[in-house]
Amino acid sequence: MDFGLLFSEFPSLTFDGIALGAIYALISLGYTLVYGVLRLINFAHSEVFMIGTFAALMASSNIMGVKIEDDPLSGGKLILTIVVCLVVAMLTSGIVAVLVEIVAYRRLRKRGATKLATLISAIGVSITLVEAFRIMTDSLPREFPRFFEKSLVAEIAGAQIRNDKLLVIFAAGLMMFVLDRFISKTRIGKGIRAVSQDEQTSVLMGININRVVTVTFLMGGLMAGAAAFFYVLVYENTSFRVGFFLGISAFTAAVLGGIGNIRGALVGGFALGLLEVYGSVLLGTAWKHVIAFTILVLVLLLKPTGLLGESIQQARV
């Protein structure tokens, strides 16, 4: 229990926690969107994220020709590289998410199969994707090149602001804002909300359920892809099993905030990021998941629908 360190480093830790929370929040959006529409834990979502990290890696080395030993980029090339990597990662993850839905869920959904059958199908897809990447990468982690020199750009109230994390927070915030507008303002966004309220009625009202589901998976995938790029930008490595713990954490974040609720996923993501950073200082990094889960259990016991409550009426199998 090192409270001294927690207090002296509190502002910097808060900043780090927000950066980590931004990544969690982006991934948990995918869980929450799919859960809102289909009442289903998309178990393969962590693999959508994992593929995003590899897509970002491919984009940087094969499209932009950046090598590990290269000097940091600067100026226009830097911006172009970041944009290309981000877009490629997002598109790849988005497409993979849509394909997962078509391969693993659509048929089961049409036959009205139980949620557990769909869950096992998702687990099957997840195993398949992880194994495919394990074989392709020879079970080795991959390094991601450093695009720009990571330096402290400012110190606000004692918090040391690192440029890459600042970029992540801003870009993630922008994306969350765009997604929130998309869901609340556009036609298809309204469709998504209608289906999460009442699937049968919205189908009777003429909403194309297949399109809503595809767009939902696409959105979740795009967000996971963005999270994947930000992850490799900050942590500079990836491996075939990168999705596992991040996926569990992100799903925890979604439940913490109230699954099915988009703003809840954001709150949950940031809350979990902060808790893990504070917790790992207090008790050591090994215990950070324990802290996160303990707090999750406490929150659920006091407020069984998560911090912001579910947007859906019932929470049952």
Binding site: F251, I259, F293, L296, P304, A315
Partner: peptide
């Protein structure tokens, strides 16, 4: 945990499994 329902129970039990391992 059993006062929770459905997927909440799933995530709490998942957490418990991980806690025991950690």
């Amino acid at each position: 945990a059993l006062r929770l329902r459905g997927d909440y129970l799933a995530i709490v039990t998942l957490g418990f499994g991980e806690i025991v391992r950690i």
